[in-house]
Amino acid sequence: MTDSEARRPLVLVVDDTPDNLMLMAGLLKESYRVKVASGGEKALRIAQTAPAPDLILLDIMMPDMDGYAVCRRLKADAATRDIPVVFLTALSEQEDEQAGLELGAVDYITKPISAPILLARVRNHIRLKEAADYIRDKNLFLEAEVERRTAHMRAIQDVTIMALASLAETRDNETGSHILRTQHYVRALAEELRHHPRFAPFLTDAVIDLLYKSAPLHDIGKVGIPDAILLKPGKLTVEEWEIMKTHATLGSDSLARAEDRLEGDSPSFLRFAREIAEAHHEKWDGSGYPRGLKGEDIPVSARLMALADVYDALISRRVYKEPMSHEQAAAIILDGRGRHFDPDVTDAFLRLADRFQEIAERYADQPIP
């Protein structure tokens, strides 16, 4: 078969009468590749075999499986449902034509066949099929391209978040592993609480993903704190502590300005990053900072980060302290239930205590040589 012949549309003719098959093949062979089937089962096998037909000319009155049954099977199969079917039949009643079209056939030609009419209709339906295939392929390409570019933008977003978070961490006594641990703690808490009546309306799959991605920016405001305070190895004075506490507002304000530049009403990672940056030092009883928010007034995102951040601070080594054991940290978290932390978030932590310990070990700080 030459390349030009291989590019010609393929027509499948289905008829239980050999003479009809020969007649149809003879009419079509000059312009199309032709396959024939003398029964429904064979027709279905051919239709499901690559290359698939571009058009099926299907007799209705056949033994064992009539054309209506064949058409139903074709339209029920995702691999063949888009192949146009034209019924060829001696049945000429309006009800017969309606029945065929309702099954998904694109046309209905009565016998005896008029060669010019048959060829004209086959040509028209082949052209329609080619146009439909082009549009479908174009749409699939565009969908794939949109998904590719969206994935690329997500990757850029994720890398940018981590770069900004790492920048903040390099100016602090903490390490990059703190970023990884806290974002995994936050996701674990969110997934544990997603079916809780108080949290279920908020903690959707999309929101949990955004919380995970935005969590690393919780201390981004520390880039605005002077080194003499941020890197001080000893205890801060009252005045220094007041300056240190401004990192929550500095981070929130910078993220808010960035968020204002985004268009659209859907929640962005910057919204949650802003909430977390500002409110993760708030306490359930209202004694936290910077605004002294209390209870439900503290965003859920910040309540999750509050516990995650405190737990990680407790188990981590700093220049001014030794790390606590997991058990000691868990006891302090429990003691803060209803005072520092949302009681339900605390209970979720207690159920996830082993998971927190596993995360801490997996992303443990590497010893400094």
Results as ranks from 00 to 15, higher is better:
Met1Asn: 03
Met1Ala: 10
Met1Gln: 02
Ser4Lys: 03
Arg7Tyr: 05
Leu10Arg: 05
Pro18Trp: 00
Leu21Pro: 13
Leu23Phe: 15
Gly26Asp: 15
Lys35Ala: 09
Lys35Pro: 00
Ser38Lys: 07
Ile46Phe: 11
Pro51Ala: 11
Ala52Arg: 08
Ile56Asn: 07
Ile56Thr: 09
Asp59Lys: 02
Gly67Leu: 07
Tyr68Phe: 15
Pro84Tyr: 09
Val85Trp: 01
Gln94Met: 04
Ile109Lys: 02
Leu119Glu: 14
Asn124Asp: 02
Lys129Cys: 06
Ile135Gln: 10
Lys138Ala: 13
Leu140Phe: 06
His152Pro: 07
Met153Arg: 11
Arg154Asn: 15
Gln157Asp: 12
Thr160Val: 03
Ile161His: 07
Met162Phe: 09
Ser166Gln: 12
His178Val: 08
Gln183Thr: 13
Tyr185Asp: 00
Phe199Met: 06
Pro201Arg: 01
Phe202Glu: 11
Leu203His: 00
Leu210Ser: 05
Lys213Trp: 01
His218Leu: 11
Asp219Asn: 14
Pro233Leu: 14
Trp241Pro: 10
Trp241Leu: 13
Ile243Arg: 06
Met244Trp: 12
Ser252Arg: 04
Ser252Asn: 01
Ser252Ala: 10
Ser254Thr: 09
Ala256Met: 02
Arg261Phe: 08
Arg261Val: 06
Leu262Gln: 08
Glu263Arg: 05
Glu263Ala: 05
Ser268Cys: 11
Arg271Thr: 07
Ile276Pro: 04
His280Ser: 08
Glu282Phe: 01
Lys283Gly: 06
Tyr289Val: 14
Tyr289Leu: 13
Gly295Trp: 01
Ala306Thr: 07
Ala313Thr: 06
Ser325Cys: 08
Glu327Ala: 14
Ala331Lys: 10
Leu334Arg: 12
Gly336Asp: 10
Arg339Trp: 07
Asp342Ile: 00
Leu350His: 02
Arg351Glu: 03
Arg351Thr: 09
Asp354Ile: 08
Arg355Pro: 02
Glu361Ser: 13
Glu361Val: 04
Tyr363Cys: 12
Pro367Gly: 14
Ile368Asp: 12
Ile368Met: 14
